[in-house]
Write a protein that binds this DNA or RNA. Sequence first.
DNA 1: ATGGCGACCGGAGGTCGA
Length: 255
Amino acid sequence: MKLATWNVNSLNVRLPHVLDWCTANQPDVLCLQETKQEDSKFPYEALTAIGYNAIHSGQKTYNGVAILSRHVLEHPSYGIPDFADEQKRLIAATVKGIRIVCAYIPNGQSVDSDKYQYKLNWLASLTTHLQAELAAHPKLALLGDYNIAPEDRDVHDPAAWLGQVLVSEPERTAFQGLVGLGLHDTFRLFEQPEASFSWWDYRMAGFRRNLGLRIDHILVSTPLLAACKASWIDKAPRKLERPSDHTPVVLELSE
DNA sequence: ATGGCGACCGGAGGTCGA
């Protein structure tokens, strides 16, 4: 069973890439972030045509999350309970007994902005919510754009990024709070190339020079650990014409 | 590295992302 996450930076623009990638890679589940479209615009028909069910929670211009699945999506839920939020950033469903949680964690903009406080509040609410979710669903995977590089090795230039948003200690502490729930960063369960990143700035030839960050993650609960077989970042879509600035992260589970 | 790109809305250029 193959799980994946991809911030597509507008599904309006990136739908051809998503269809091609799903056809070529056949993920069982693909979590999308930044669809940037209202539910009425979501391309259910095009996805059905290649064998995918989908649920979506979106809005115009910003945010928007979706779960695509080759299997039945049971018990969909939207948003964080008890956290009033106009921004569409969380969607979840159960696939083959695994609770799939797809998150677009706020960016935060800069550490001195209101958006940074919103990010930390959002993460605190998510953590509380996931504690209950884990009690109800021992097999759980949290996939998405975390907008946090958990360690210095996830940053192309840690000195330049020191203390900045995406890297700051409060954000990394929040990430460790998720780990503290009994979630595991599956990418690091396996040997990986040095300087492995999932996002590269469009500017300054960031991708060509590998000036990136690893901010897209797949965390799984302890009951799923033994099933983890491999994890990798697929850089191929980042090389296409008009790419997203993020690229897919994949986790392979044994059945 | 701090600007550079790209998406969006709106119909120019500001805002946001990361």
